[in-house]
């Protein structure tokens, strides 16, 4: 009985990982764009970025997730109805990934911003003095060095993101936590299944910790 649920949970682990990795990609994109806007953008766009990072980081992920998931679907459907189009139901995977990516984008913004600022200014001036275009300076000098300073922060944010992604079970995505609940109910062994899922999370965090240390060695010179 119990062992028949374990493969199911492992399948759920894959879904949890897919949610987390897709959200990570999105959050990195949001974060990088936003950090660049905060540092180099026009002032009105900068104001938008500052509001985004401040507001998102002041609200619990769960509330943000419920607001964006339920509110987003409703808003989208209100627009569709106004246009005389049939209403749709959001794909839970996409909605979950968009929400978590959007939330953690705010955290990555701060990581990237301070990493950009940590690159010594003299090197950028040296690049300009060599006749590099601004884009070239960004691509060859600023960006690769920024990445090195950003790595520890990226690791912390990634671990927090991974753990927050467990909340997608609350909007009905059938991830590890959701499956653990079902299996626990069916077998009357809720502790066992929640604990197994916890151990899988520990395995993932330990693995990514090792990967980050390797990346850290690779990018430090």
């Amino acid at each position: 009985m119990v062992s028949s649920y374990l493969p199911l949970i492992l399948g759920g682990a894959l879904l949890s990982l897919r949610v987390a990795l897709a959200s990570l990609a999105l959050a990195l994109l949001f974060g990088l764009t936003n950090a660049s806007i905060k540092l180099f953008g026009p002032s009105w766009l900068r104001a938008v970025s500052v509001t985004y990072t401040t507001v998102i980081r002041g609200i619990p992920e769960l509330v943000m997730m419920l607001l964006l998931f339920f509110g987003g679907e409703k808003l989208f459907n209100l627009v569709l109805t106004a246009l005389d189009l049939p209403t749709v139901e959001f794909n839970k995977f996409v909605a979950g990934v968009l929400t978590i990516g959007f939330i953690y984008g705010a955290y990555f913004t701060e990581t990237f911003r301070s990493a950009f600022l940590a690159v010594p200014k003299g090197q950028l001036e040296a690049g300009v003095a060599y006749g590099m275009t601004p884009w070239r300076v960004f691509r060859s000098i600023l960006f690769p060095q920024m990445l090195r300073y950003a790595l520890p922060g990226i690791n912390n944010n990634w671990l927090a993101l991974l753990k927050s992604a467990a909340l997608v079970s609350l909007i009905g995505l059938e991830d590890m936590a959701w499956l653990a609940e079902q299996a626990g109910r069916a077998t009357q062994k809720p502790f066992l299944f929640y604990f197994v899922v916890c151990l899988i999370y520990l395995a993932i965090t330990a693995t990514s910790g090792g990967a980050m240390r390797w990346l850290g060695r690779r990018y430090s010179y």
Binding site: K163, G184, F195, Y201
Partner: peptide, 23 residues
């Protein structure tokens, strides 16, 4: 500390509130 920092708080809460009844 390693266990509680490495696992989601949501699951820790489930473990305590729903899980313990198993025993």
């Amino acid at each position: 500390s390693y266990f509680f920092r490495g696992t989601p708080l949501f699951l820790q809460l489930m473990l305590i509130y729903y899980g313990l009844s198993q025993f």
